[in-house]
Each structure stands twice: as C-alpha cells, then as structure tokens.
Design a binder for these strands. Structure first.
Lengths: 297, 297
DNA sequence: GGCTTGCATATTACTTATAAAAAACAACTT
DNA sequence: AAGTTGTTTTTTATAAGTAATATGCAAGCC
C-alpha cells in the first residue's frame, strides 16, 4: 500500500497558506492551488474535501467558505508527511554516521529493513541510489560493503571538488560584464556581510549561503556531472555537520570571510587571485571535514 | 521467484572447465570448484548433482567419475544464464540508443516493465542505477525524463573526462622509476604495436586495449569518484560503438597511434608533451562520439 | 475559447510472498 | 587440526498485489 504522505504534506501546506492569508480557498481554483503546492489535482481535491469534512471550510452551494478556525492540532504530525524514502535516508545516515559503524561492515538489506520498518525493496532502492556517494559497494549476489566515512574518503571527495570548483570559478569570472550572474553575486556578497554582523545569533544560516554561492558559481557554465557531484557534497555536509556542532560559530565565521575574499577575487577577474582565494577556502573546508571525521571516529 | 541464472551460468562454466581439461571433477573438492567459479557452495552442489543426474558424471560410491561425454546441447542457452538485471540493461540501452528515442520522452516504468517482460521493481532499480549516467532524471511522484543522448551530453561528458585524464596522466608520469606500473605500460605499448600490425583482422580488439590503458593510468593515483565516472564512459562507449560500426577500422587505427604517442609522452615525463598527447587523443575521441551521435539522430 | 470541475484510467510508491543462492553450522574424514 | 561434505538458516533477486497519486478526457460555465 502506498502511504498518503503526499496528501498529508499538501494538507499541512494548505493550512499554512490559509493561515498566512496567502490563499483564499473560496477564490482559488483547484488548478491554481495545485500549481501552488506542487501536487496533482487529485491530491488537491482530497485536501479540499478533508478541509470540508473537518468543518474548516463549508461547501454550501458552490464555493467553499471559511468555517472553524484552524488549530495547531489540525496539522498532521511531521513524520507522517515524509515519504518512506526520506525516512530510510535519514535513518541510514544516522546508522552510518552516528552509530559508529565501522569500515568493512557488511550491510544486510533484510536487517536494515526490519530495523527501519520498511520493505527490503525500499532499502535496496535507497542503497542503489546511495552507492554513487562512494561510501558503499555492492558485492555480487550478496550484500553491500560499507567502505567507511574515513579521512581517505574526505580527501578523495575534495580532490574532485577542488578541480570542479577551480574550473567553474575561472569560467564564472570570464562572464560578460552585463551577465545577471554578477548581480546575483553582489546580492550574495551583501548577504554574507549581513550575516557576519549578526553571526552570534544566526551562524546556522551559513550553510544555506554556502550552498547558494557554490551553486551560483557552477551555474555559470553548467555541467550535469558537476551538478551531480555537488549533490554528493551537499548531502555529506548536511548530515555530517548536523551532528558535529563543535566550534560551529568560529568555523562559520572564518568561512564567511573566505567567501568574501573569494567573491572579491571573482569580481576582480584576476585568474591568479581567484585560484588563491578558491584554494584557501577549499583547503580550510577540507581541514574542517577531516578534523570532524577524526573526532567522531 | 528468483531465476536460476547463477546456477545455469555456473553449470556452463563447469562444463567448459571439464572439457578444457582444466578441472577433474573426481579430484576437485566442492570448495575448490566454488572458488574457481565464484559462486557459493550451494550452487556448486547443485551443479554437481545436475551433472550426475544427466550422467555426465557417475557418483558410484564416494567420488564422481566421468560418464557420458559432454555435448553442445548440454550447455544452457546463453539468455538463461544472465540475470534479469542484465537483460533490462541491454533492452533499455537498445530502446534508448537504437529505438530513436527522442530527448524529452517520458519514461513509463509500467510500460517498460511490460515491454521487457519484468516486474516494475526491476525497471525502477535499473533506472535508479542508470540515473547517474546523466541521461535521465526523476520527476517527483511521477516518471522519468529522458534528456537525450545528445551532442551536449557528449560535450559535458568529455569536459569531465579531459579533466580527470589530464590529472591522472600527470600523476602517472610522476611515479618513481621502479614502479611496476611502468612495466605494465611497456606491455601495453607492445600490445598496441602488435595490434597495429594485425589491424585489418583484429580492429575490434581495440576497445579492450583502450580500457586497459585508461584504467592503468587511473590506477596510479586512485580516486573512487574518477573510477565511478570511468564506468559511465565505459558503458556509454560499449553500447554506442556496438551499434555504430562506420569507419571502425580507420577510427581504431588512428586511436592506436594516438595511444602510442600518449604512452611515449607519459614515459618521457615531459608535462607539456603529456598534455599535448592526452588532449589530442581526447579531442579525437570526442569528435568521433559527437559525429556518431549526429549520424544516428 | 479558455478555464473550471467531475469522472475514469494509468502510474507510482509501496508491501508481501517465494524460490534461488549464500552463509553458517555441524558432523565426518582423513 | 584442517579440509571435506551434509544440513539448516539467512539473505537476495525477483514477481505479484494494492492504495495513493497523477494524468487524461469529457462536460459545463463564463
């Protein structure tokens, strides 16, 4: 049976939009709402009829009208709004990164399936998807081998990352002066400066800026393989840093300064300067990752 | 139900070994045979009892002894010895590359499953595995989009390939003089020269040499992400060239000469020369691929 | 004619089931 | 004691089945 997490998420999202006054149910067509939420009309209709069933709207005659106010308890709990796939990812990452899973461990589909409460198929699909992260390896007609989230892994990851980043940075700096990317870069610079001022309170926001900057640079001359690789980096960082909070403020503050230097170098168009600034940032990011791996293991 | 293709392949392999006089069933332990064929002992025992059941061996008392001679008809037909997974790959590649499938086509799991005669699960697993080749893309809660085996694809592929190859070539050339890799390189050079002499008859053998050379170069300083990427290249070339035979002899002859120049450059240790030879080979390989895409589409 | 909703159909995201194959265990043989 | 075979248990590779979701088509409305 397929879970109804799509519906539940859509329902929650609709409640949000209504509460925020962003959407007037009575005046919005099914199709407009569909586009807004990003699901099919079938799901939107299910949401509308649920709203009705709960008395949050009243479908007297044609158009629904506001009924009962929306309560916190009307929202579906978060875990019910995410797909099994998402659950598996989260639980696997936790098992791997936090569970002190040793390099060389054999991964057992059946056991993970029981442990995570899903069918083996879901585990297998996840593992296939995950295998491109270079951390696991399939053994023919047998299980999977966990190769370990090791220093070696981090170094290999960064070797590629540096190559890609340097390539993209140079291409970015060669964009014509009237390219809209320069405007975006300027905006990002401001956002960095702003964050630096409020670093004490908002240091968590750095990872979003980090992502935006690197994605922007890669967008100047897109290459699907580089994009894919960047997804690897994003996921690794997402989970790894989520559980390694040590010195986060200082690390992020330093990284912001590196970003600012990098942004200035890009604007300058001086290839040598770009390489220097880029490498400095990459090196410190690598050091941070390697250090946190050592610390964790 | 799980197919018994592993057993059938193991059975055929055993017949081969016995026919070649490589293995004496009577004198070989189950475990030794297992190691030789690369399957579990369970499967080996199944093979042995099938041999017995057919009278190819006679298990009078303890050790089996030779019985009837082995006939061609004793072998299982090839298609029964490959896994469903392999079938799906082959059929999908054919559908995609030869079926004139247009960029933008939506891939329907159910339809492919029916077309290929497998369960949807198998299709889905294949597509997930295949998605890292950058040719298809998942649409959330919906099907997959075929992005097209286009010139743009080939160019993006080669942009990365050139970066990786240059990196590995330089690292290779810096190996110490007594590294065993130099011996391997020398052997490969001889093999190339040999093939050049017999190019008229054996030009198909080039792709194997091509693979060996590039893998050797990458092995000097391994990086799992580069290895993975090379698998993408290998698969693309494997299928694409399988169906594009135009000018194959001339293309391969030219490529062999490029390889020889590349090998010499590597041995010389002259970074500039290496870059030149490497780029020349990469450029001509790219041209070949792009041309055959245009020709096919 | 374009936009709406109602309805029917197709496809996906799962779960459960099963034979094949691998792995683990035990008993036996040199 | 190490290697062999017999037996049992576990795990994988696949198929079949099902509710949720997406998609397509038709009819109605401004």
């Amino acid at each position: 049976m397929k879970p109804d997490s799509v519906f539940k998420k859509a329902f929650n999202r609709t409640l949000q939009l209504v509460e925020a006054g962003d959407v007037d149910i009575g005046a919005t067509s099914e199709n407009a709402l569909r586009a807004r939420i990003g699901v099919s009309r079938t799901t939107v209709r299910k949401v509308l009829s649920e709203l009705d069933a709960r008395g949050i709207t009243q479908a007297t005659g044609k158009r629904p009208r506001a009924g009962k106010p929306i309560l916190k308890s009307d929202y579906f709990p978060d875990p019910e709004t995410t797909s099994k796939r998402q659950h598996v990812e989260e639980q696997f990452m936790e098992w791997m990164l936090r569970g002190d899973t040793q390099p060389g461990t054999l991964i057992n589909e059946l056991q993970l399936a029981r442990q995570f409460g899903v069918a083996t198929n879901g585990i297998r699909e996840f593992l296939i998807r995950f295998s491109r992260f270079g951390l696991i390896e399939k053994k023919q007609n047998s299980g999977w081998l966990f190769k370990g989230f090791t220093e070696e892994y981090a170094l290999e990851l960064f070797e590629i990352r540096v190559m890609f980043e340097l390539r993209s940075a140079v291409l970015f700096s060669e964009l014509p002066d009237d390219s809209p990317f320069w405007t975006e870069l300027a905006e990002l610079k401001t956002a960095h400066q702003q964050l630096l001022l409020e670093i004490g309170r908002r240091f968590h926001d750095f990872s979003r800026l980090d992502n935006r900057l690197h994605r922007l640079i890669n967008r100047a001359a897109p290459n699907r393989f580089i994009d894919d690789f960047y997804e690897v980096i994003t996921l690794i960082f997402h989970y790894h840093y989520q559980w390694n909070k040590k010195d986060e403020l200082q690390r992020n503050e330093a990284a912001i300064r590196e970003h600012l230097a990098y942004i200035d170098a890009l604007s300058s168009g001086d290839a040598h300067e770009i390489e220097r600034a880029c490498l400095r940032h990459m090196t410190s990011a690598r050091t941070t990752l390697v250090r946190s791996i050592d610390g964790a293991g």
